[in-house]
Design a protein around this nucleic acid. Structure first.
Length: 423
RNA sequence: GGUGAGGUGCCUGAGAGGCCGAAAGGAUCAGUUUGCUAAACUGACGUACGGGAAACUGUACCGAGGGUUCGAAUCCCUCCCUCACCGCCA
């Protein structure tokens, strides 16, 4: 959520930035400013009436104590209109505030100046490509066939016990999951992210904090009986750890990482592109989260991208880094890098990580602040990224490392899997 | 699920209709003192939204929302949450 004061002070710039995100309702900006004017006027009137009433109430108290009942009664008789005014103005104010909030949440975050214009994924900017493309045997298989061939993943069993999109990992497939999780966590810790293990369900307030609510509730699994949501990403519980917190400047940056399963309903997308592990309702992910000082959040964003690149390099997977264009970016992000690995058997790029700087968009809702050099509270910047999401990494490893004799486990993972071949 | 207790500032905790944005202690910060560490003393120290160049100032906030009253942290109602014990249980 953008701050109203920022919108007021930077109207032109806000409009210009929103255009980069192809925002369709620029009129909202002026509506918000006008509503805020109204809000201020109403509040000032309310404050003034309240001030008068407060003074009178105090005087009445003093008169009563002094035994001057008659004078007190005279004052009392005057309070009626104030009460009415206070009530009316109070109601007006909450109506205006509610209206303002409803409009405010419709504005997406402003894209960073480096964000390219564009509408579709094709217009994302390829920042770099790295790693050699693998040469696969002539009869190379896609990962879902490899998973069946080597008895690693059972999609049908998952359908039986839960439904489509909930695979059962078996044998070396299950062990590979654990190996990747531990490897990613260890690497994140080496990079300075301290591990947290958090609940997989969150309450409504947390959903609002990272703005999955109120708009995207359809994407989350909801436990109505207890009014809890299954997390779509560890970003939600980890970032909400710092909801309503005022940090000291020297506590920044806060760096956390954590592994969780992620649950996404992702209704309405079927077909070849979602076969196998390409899109699931439940998957494992290691997430990295930072809370940063606004002055260096972009440097930290680059660091996070480098960290994720390092993982892909060490796993020996060809990858590319994309800077998302305005139209493809998430609602709350100011700058997003997607990292994709090349799936050799499917002959296409698979998104395995998304690293974003939200600037103050989340922290404004979270009331996540720090005390700046002047001793004043200021909103911190929040950043997060996948490091990494497992399923597509598993898919790419299976496909790219397949040989006539089986699938070779990437070297860095062998200490974790304790086997070198899947065969 | 049952029963009981309770939600006050960074923490502990007082507060029972006006003198309460809130005692006291701790923590933190600044200063004084001190050979170091420690201690002592003095002072500062909530958040948000307005107004003001600033000093400062108005309003709101004691879990949330309503109500009673000239006046509510304090009384009444509804809801939410937490804790303890019992039951069940990994």
């Amino acid at each position: 959520m953008l701050q109203v004061n920022y919108i007021r002070d930077n109207r032109e710039q806000v409009l210009e930035r929103l255009a980069v995100k192809n925002f369709k309702q620029p009129a909202l900006v002026d509506e918000i400013i006008q509503l805020d004017d109204k809000r201020r006027q109403t509040q000032t009137s309310l404050d003034n009436v309240s001030a008068e009433a407060n003074v009178a109430a105090k005087q009445i108290g003093e008169l009563m104590r002094a035994g001057k009942k008659d004078e007190a009664e005279v004052l009392k008789s005057k309070t009626g209109t104030w009460k009415e005014d206070i009530k009316a103005l109070g109601e007006q104010l909450s109506t205006i505030e509610e209206e303002l909030y409803q409009k405010q949440v419709l504005l997406p975050n402003l894209p960073h100046s480096s964000v390219p214009k564009g509408l579709t994924p094709e217009e994302n900017e390829v920042v770099l490509e790295s790693g050699a493309m693998p040469h696969l045997p002539a009869n190379a298989l896609p990962h879902w066939e490899l998973a069946a061939k080597y008895n690693l993943i059972d999609f049908e069993l998952g359908v039986k016990i839960t439904g489509a999109g909930f695979p059962v990992y078996k044998n070396k497939g299950a062990k590979l999951q654990r190996a990747l999780i531990n490897y990613f966590i260890d690497e994140a810790e080496k990079a300075g992210f301290s591990e947290v293990s958090v609940p997989l369900m969150v309450n409504e307030a947390s959903g609002f904090g990272t703005s999955q609510l109120p708009d995207k509730e359809g994407q989350m699994y909801y436990v109505g009986l207890d009014n809890l949501y299954l997390i779509p990403t560890a970003e939600v519980p980890i970032t909400n750890l710092y909801r309503d917190v005022i940090l000291k400047a020297d506590e920044l940056p806060v760096k956390n990482c954590g592994h969780t399963p992620c649950f996404r309903r992702e209704a309405g997308s079927y077909g070849a592109h979602v076969r196998g592990l390409n899109r699931l309702h439940q998957f494992d992910k290691v997430e990295i989260v930072q809370i940063a000082h606004p002055d260096n959040s972009y440097a930290l964003l680059e660091e996070m991208v480098s960290h994720v690149q390092g993982l892909l390099q060490k796993l020996g997977l060809p990858y590319r880094v994309l800077r998302l264009c305005g139209g493809d970016m998430g609602f709350g992000s100011a700058l997003t890098y997607d990292l994709e690995t090349w799936s050799a058997a499917q002959q296409r790029w698979l998104e395995v990580s998304s690293v974003s700087n939200f600037e103050t968009f989340q922290s404004n809702r979270l009331k996540l602040r720090f005390r700046n050099a002047e001793g004043k509270t200021q909103l911190a910047h929040t950043l997060n990224g996948s490091a990494l999401a497992l399923p597509r990494i598993v898919a790419t490893i299976l496909e790219n490392y397949q040989t006539e004799n089986g699938i070779k486990v990437p070297e860095v993972l062998v200490p974790y899997t304790k086997f070198e071949w899947i065969d």
